[in-house]
Amino acid sequence: MMLTSMRNSTWIYRAAFVAIALALLFFKMLPLGSIAGDWPGPDLMLCLMLAWVTQRPDHLPTGLIALVVLTEDMILMRPPGLWSALVVLATEFLRARSALTRELGFAAEWLLISGVMIAMLLAYRLVFVVAFMTQPGFGFAFAQTVGSILMYPVIVWLLRVVFHLRKPSTGEVDAMGRRL
């Protein structure tokens, strides 16, 4: 009985993630506040994925992350797969360090996430430079990254309050008996 409820809760969390991702994508597509020269908003989808993987890496499989970001790439007409690949690499980097981030305080975790976001920005822009593609100014992209870094604690707080997501405790196992 307990095993079934744990498996079902994982699927509920995955469905909630997809619903939130679709809502964020819908609001990103709306023409709200599109005044030239305005400050870019933070990438809430990226914050959500990095926070979720940091808090509960067992709830978001790599394929689901790739599918959601690839869908976002297609709808927002970004180069298909580039941002998806970077997000998957970043989430897998964090997933591989889940035992380390479990022991870190929030300030160290935030610093780690900040470094990951900046590395993603630089890698994305490097690929654009190598491929001779036009891209928005660095200041615009950097402002969005800084906004995302500043929004990360809010997203973590919301995940903890609304979804009761918390880092797994030492020795906790998932529904299949694997250590988290």
Rank of each mutant, 00 (worst) to 15 (best):
E92G: 07
E92K: 14
F93N: 05
F93L: 00
F93G: 03
F93M: 09
F93V: 02
L94Q: 01
L94H: 03
A96G: 05
R97G: 03
R97I: 07
R97D: 02
S98G: 02
S98F: 11
S98I: 00
S98D: 03
S98H: 15
S98C: 15
S98N: 13
A99E: 09
A99Q: 13
L100N: 13
L100F: 14
T101S: 13
T101M: 15
R102E: 08
E103Q: 14
L104H: 14
G105E: 10
G105H: 13
G105N: 07
F106S: 02
F106P: 04
F106A: 12
A107G: 04
A107S: 13
A107E: 01
A108G: 12
A108M: 14
A108I: 13
E109D: 13
E109N: 14
W110N: 10
W110F: 07
L111W: 12
L111A: 15
L111N: 11
L111F: 14
L112M: 10
I113Y: 11
I113K: 07
S114H: 02
S114R: 02
S114A: 14
G115F: 09
G115M: 08
G115S: 01
M117H: 03
M117P: 11
I118F: 11
I118D: 06
A119I: 05
M120T: 02
M120I: 08
L121F: 08
L121I: 09
L122Y: 07
L122P: 05
L122V: 06
A123W: 05
A123Y: 09
A123D: 01
Y124F: 12
Y124M: 07
Y124K: 10
Y124S: 04
Y124A: 12
R125L: 04
R125D: 04
R125S: 05
R125E: 10
R125A: 06
R125I: 00
L126E: 01
L126Q: 04
V127T: 04
V127E: 00
V127G: 01
V127C: 01
V127M: 02
F128P: 04
F128K: 09
V129Y: 06
V129C: 11
V129D: 05
V129E: 07
V130W: 08
A131R: 03
A131N: 09
F132M: 12
F132P: 01
F132R: 14
M133G: 08
M133N: 02
T134R: 15
T134V: 14
Q135N: 11
Q135V: 04
Q135T: 10
Q135H: 04
